[in-house]
Simulated assay, not measured.
Amino acid sequence: MSYCDYAPILQEVADLAAAQPMPEAEVQRYGDLVPDGLREVWRRHGADLIVGEGRIQFCDPSPMRVALAPWFEGDAGLSIERFVPFAYTSHGTILITDGSSTLHDLDLAFSKLTVIRGQDSRPLDQRLTFSIEVSMRYLKQSKHDVDHHAKAVRAFGPLHLGEVFGWEPPFQVTLDASHQIGKFTIADRIAQLQAIGPLEYHRAFRDEIEAAQYGGDSFIRCVGPEPLGG
């Protein structure tokens, strides 16, 4: 059963037995946009689950869609109604499925939306759990061998439901003292970034051949309106 694909991740959820199941009408709302295993997770445990002190959080797609919608309003190529945000990392990378082999991630650290085309025939539940596991591993790794999640937890404590760590000011690209990490609700962080400007939409290359096809440029276009007065 595809629910089993999520078992290693769910083992890191504290008080899983106390989690509130999602109502069946809400589970069925997303139809073929969500694979069977993820629907079963929602059916048994609900969508609001904190994994490993907030390293990953499963999330209810409905309020997340509402929060993200201003970036996609009126976009003919990217409909928020086809996107199901199902989880996000402690540093604000939102994982999104649309029921196909294509995944998206939206990195709030850089206001960057990346499309990741399906590269194999694995069932979608396995692709989703792989994306979660990769995201969790990524937070533990850097060229300086720093676990940024653990470092932030030591400074600010574990994340609560709906919270993420982030840089202030946003778009931190160096480690100088002018940038400080802090705790935000993910809804407030999204609204803050929408006030700054649109997303950059990028493609993830499958290999060097595909990279050469696009001249090594992963940028596709901008998504979302410019800020008022921008």
Rank of each mutant, 00 (worst) to 15 (best):
G224D: 12
D125F: 03
Y3M: 09
P123K: 02
F110M: 06
L128T: 01
R82D: 05
V34Q: 09
D75I: 03
L139F: 04
G99S: 05
L95M: 02
E40T: 10
W167E: 08
V13K: 01
G182H: 15
L128Y: 11
A204K: 15
V13Y: 13
G162Y: 06
A187E: 15
H144M: 08
R39M: 14
A187T: 14
L113R: 11
F184H: 14
G182F: 10
D32C: 04
R117T: 07
H160V: 08
D36T: 14
L103G: 03
T102K: 12
E208D: 13
Y6T: 01
S218M: 08
P21I: 05
G229M: 06
G92I: 11
F205Q: 09
F86I: 05
G230Q: 01
L175W: 08
G31A: 11
P170V: 06
H160E: 15
Q172K: 09
Y214L: 10
G92D: 09
S79K: 10
V41K: 11
K151R: 09
L10P: 00
D145E: 04
G37L: 08
S100T: 11
R43Q: 12
G31H: 11
P198E: 15
V41N: 04
L175D: 12
R154M: 11
L103H: 07
E24A: 09
F184T: 02
L228E: 14
H45W: 08
V84P: 03
L33D: 05
R43P: 01
D60M: 03
S142N: 10
L78R: 07
